[in-house]
Amino acid sequence: MSFTTMAKQAALASWEGSFNHPFIKELQAGTLDKDIFRYYLIQDHYYLKHFNELYALIAKSTTHPELKALLMENAKNLALGEIAIREDFFSELGITDEEIEHTPIAPTAYHYVSHMYRQLIEGTINSAAASMLPCAWLYQELGDTLITKQSPVPIYQRWIETYAGVEAQEHIQQERALLDELYAASQPDEQTQMIEAFVISSEMELAFWEMAYQKEQWYKNQ
């Protein structure tokens, strides 16, 4: 059984939880509170900034030519696509640089990013790459699922369209195939690390929706 098949099976509960979370259900139905979506976008701004940096750091650290090329392409695509589209969302919703700067980073966003950085320090290059996959893969599957029913709120529909389509599917298949190859060539201890890194990231994806839905804050800020 391939790495990505085993990893997704191990993370199935949190994966299904993301599809069934009220944030996702209400976003498609058009009933999601705009303030919740705004909070999500602000926290995601922090997350994507570091996610892009992690692509670059892992690419710089690896000697595997295919992994280096894929991660550098991911960083480029993220900057030109998802991050650029977010700027339009910020403008439409009146999210200013000042608001972003003065909104504390929520615990879940902080912990998720910290988990991926930790893979570079205490894990391996392969486990670091594995920790990055759930975000792109889950969003691609969410996009393909949600696109089948039009959201009545235009900005929510544009968010869905960001992640749907054949191009996104093909890129995820390429990334999955490479990680399957890296896993097969790894020692058992590293294989375990890769599975664990993937599962934790999947659980953090589910926690991220809840973080936004509850407008999660540190205790000192509540």
Score class of each variant (00 low, 15 high):
S2C: 13
T4I: 15
T4Y: 12
T5S: 14
T5I: 15
M6H: 10
M6A: 15
Q9P: 06
A11Y: 10
W15T: 11
W15C: 03
S18C: 14
F19G: 02
F19S: 01
N20C: 10
H21K: 05
P22S: 11
P22G: 08
P22H: 06
F23H: 07
E26L: 08
L27W: 09
L27K: 07
Q28M: 13
A29S: 15
D33I: 09
K34F: 12
D35K: 14
D35H: 13
R38P: 09
L41Y: 07
I42H: 00
I42W: 01
Q43T: 05
Q43W: 01
D44V: 03
L48R: 01
H50W: 04
H50R: 07
N52K: 05
E53G: 15
L54F: 03
Y55V: 00
A56M: 05
A59T: 05
A59M: 06
S61V: 00
T63A: 14
P65V: 08
E66A: 10
E66W: 04
K68W: 00
L70W: 09
L70R: 10
L70I: 13
E73M: 07
E73W: 09
N74R: 10
A75G: 11
A79H: 09
I83Q: 13
A84N: 07
D88E: 14
F90M: 03
F90T: 06
S91P: 00
E92T: 14
E98D: 14
E99T: 10
E101M: 09
E101V: 02
T103Y: 01
P104L: 03
P104Q: 03
A106G: 04
P107Q: 01
P107Y: 09
P107K: 02
A109H: 00
V113F: 02
H115I: 05
Q119V: 07
Q119P: 01
I121C: 01
E122N: 07
E122W: 00
G123T: 06
T124C: 05
I125C: 06
A129D: 10
S131T: 00
M132R: 02
L133C: 06
C135I: 02
Y139K: 08
L142S: 05
G143E: 07
G143S: 08
D144F: 03
D144R: 14
T145P: 07
L146M: 15
I147D: 12
T148L: 15
S151K: 00
V153Q: 04
I155C: 02
R158G: 07
W159Q: 01
W159P: 04
Y163C: 10
Q169S: 13
E170I: 12
H171W: 13
Q173P: 00
Q173I: 08
Q174F: 03
Q174H: 13
E175F: 02
E175H: 04
A177M: 07
A177C: 05
L179W: 10
L182M: 12
L182P: 03
A185V: 04
A185R: 13
A185T: 02
A185F: 00
S186Q: 07
S186N: 11
Q187P: 05
D189H: 04
I195T: 04
E196R: 13
E196D: 14
V199S: 05
V199M: 02
S202Q: 11
E203W: 01
E205Y: 03
E205S: 08
E205G: 06
A207R: 14
W209Q: 01
W209I: 06
E210I: 02
M211Y: 04
A212H: 04
K215F: 04
E216V: 02
Q217G: 09
N221E: 13
N221F: 15
